[in-house]
Simulated assay, not measured.
Amino acid sequence: MIQLLSMVILSEMAVITVLSFKTPFRKLVIMGLDLVKRGRGPVVVKTVAGTVFVVMMSSLYSIQKRWADDGVTNPTDQILMVTSLLEATLMGGTLFLALMIDRLHHYIKELRIRRKSMDALRKQVDLDKVKALEEEVTTLRGELKQAESDIETKTKQISAAKVNSVALRKQSEGLLLEYDRLLEENESLRSQLKSLDQKLSRLDSKKNM
């Protein structure tokens, strides 16, 4: 009995060690525990655990009763009492380690579920960020197109203004040339008038003589 319980405890300790570290064997152990917890597995485990617990309590009760009634009288009783106490201790250790394995398995599964939910939430947040960035890019593209159209309109207006300024400059140059021509004609007319005045004054002076 002691050897069997010792082997069970060593096996449970090995399972706890495997569950405590991330190794390829942990997946196999988790799959095995998942299979144990399916179907009639939980009922069988609870039945075995209940039986071990009852046997442990009966052993402790018998030890306590023998100690209270007769006391330790000879070495044989001492050996039997120590053996019973060791068996009860091993049974308690077996139940405790089984509970530890169950809780570790539960927490590992819960951690995996939470990680998956966090990854899904993170992906959703990333998708929302991508959508927001795409909308921002679309808005910026629209603003860029509007700016390009405004620049094109302004460029056309500037080109038209340049053309108008060139036309006005040519027109002003033509007006200046016309003004210069008119000034020259005016000067020539003045000179002609002066010459006529001089001729008239000469004629008048001749008549008076």
Rank of each mutant, 00 (worst) to 15 (best):
V125E: 14
M56F: 03
Q198H: 11
L183W: 05
Q157I: 04
L111A: 14
L95A: 06
M1E: 11
L95N: 01
E12A: 09
Y107N: 12
F53R: 13
L104D: 14
H106S: 08
S149R: 10
R114Y: 03
V72P: 00
V125S: 11
S205T: 14
D102I: 01
D70Y: 05
D70M: 06
K129P: 00
E136P: 03
S165W: 01
R122F: 10
V29A: 02
K199D: 09
L183Y: 04
L203H: 09
S165H: 10
K154C: 07
S188E: 08
Y61S: 14
K145H: 08
S172C: 14
S149V: 08
T94I: 08
Q64M: 15
K170T: 07
M118F: 11
P42A: 04
K156Q: 05
S20E: 10
G71K: 03
L35V: 11
K22L: 02
L196E: 10
V55G: 04
R181T: 14
L168C: 04
E12F: 04
M7K: 13
K22N: 02
G92Q: 04
K131M: 07
V15Q: 01
A147N: 08
M13I: 13
T155H: 07
L80R: 00
V130N: 05
L19D: 02
M1H: 08
I9Y: 06
N74W: 01
L95C: 06
E134N: 10
G142D: 10
T76P: 05
T23R: 10
L133H: 05
S205E: 15
V130R: 06
T17E: 15
K27G: 08
L5Q: 07
A167N: 14
S205Q: 15
L168R: 01
V36S: 00
R181P: 02
L90W: 05
V8E: 03
E136K: 08
R190P: 05
A160M: 11
K109C: 14
K207R: 12
S165M: 00
L196I: 05
L196P: 00
V15L: 08
M7S: 14
K162R: 07
M91F: 08
R169Y: 10
L97Q: 15
R115V: 13
G92E: 00
H106C: 08
S201N: 12
G32N: 13
S62H: 07
M56R: 01
R169M: 12
V45F: 05
V45T: 07
R112L: 15
N186H: 07
K37Q: 10
S195L: 12
D150T: 01
L5N: 06
L60K: 07
G92K: 00
Q78L: 13
K145G: 01
R26V: 07
Q198A: 13
D150Y: 04
T76D: 13
D70W: 06
M56L: 03
L60W: 10
E178L: 09
V166W: 02
Y179T: 15
F96V: 02
I63R: 00
G71T: 01
F21M: 06
E184F: 08
N74T: 03
G142A: 06
T89W: 04
E173R: 05
K154N: 09
